[in-house]
Simulated scan of single mutants.
Amino acid sequence: MTDAFHSRFSAEEMAAIRRSLRDEARFGSEFMGRLKRVAKRIPFAEDLLAAWFCARDPATPRRVRMTLLAAVGYFVLPIDAIPDLLPFLGFTDDAAVLAAAIAAVAGSITPVHREKAKQAMAEL
């Protein structure tokens, strides 16, 4: 991760991300469960899924995977700069973190990842 991206997370947030990523199955379940609950309310749901599929792809470089998993982890974490319950503002911090992560690794998210995301959105 670049220093600029890494510095967007507090020490407490990074510790929570590391804890949640240790159990990949639980993390995936939490991610998909949360996404299902809010997918219709957030305009960046398909990008979030594309990032998830890219991070889960074994061909994705480790640095890219960690960057994307940190962004997805921030979406899943209950610790949030702006509480997600606030109408209109709740997911802006999540969107900003995801946008920064995607910008940092944009070339790694392939059309295959985007197509998987589109299919998954249709199933939600």
Rank of each mutant, 00 (worst) to 15 (best):
A95L: 12
R65L: 06
A25W: 04
E46F: 01
I17A: 06
F53V: 00
A51F: 00
A70I: 03
F53K: 00
L68R: 02
T92N: 09
S20P: 02
G28R: 09
F53W: 03
A15E: 14
M14L: 15
T92C: 09
T2F: 07
M32C: 06
A55Q: 05
A39P: 07
P43Y: 15
L21D: 04
L89Y: 14
H6K: 13
F44W: 14
L86G: 03
A81D: 08
A101F: 02
L77Q: 09
D93F: 09
S7D: 12
D94L: 03
A11D: 15
Y74I: 02
P58W: 03
K40C: 09
R62I: 15
W52T: 00
Y74V: 02
T60Y: 01
A70P: 04
F27H: 10
A70M: 13
G33N: 14
K40N: 10
A99M: 06
D3L: 11
V72H: 04
D80V: 08
T60D: 05
S20E: 13
D3N: 10
I17Y: 02
F53C: 01
E24Q: 11
R41H: 13
T67N: 05
R18I: 08
L49T: 06
S7H: 11
A101C: 10
F75Q: 01
F27N: 01
M66C: 12
L85S: 11
P61C: 07
F44E: 05
M66F: 12
S10D: 03
A103G: 15
A55N: 07
P61A: 08
G90L: 08
R62W: 12
R34S: 04
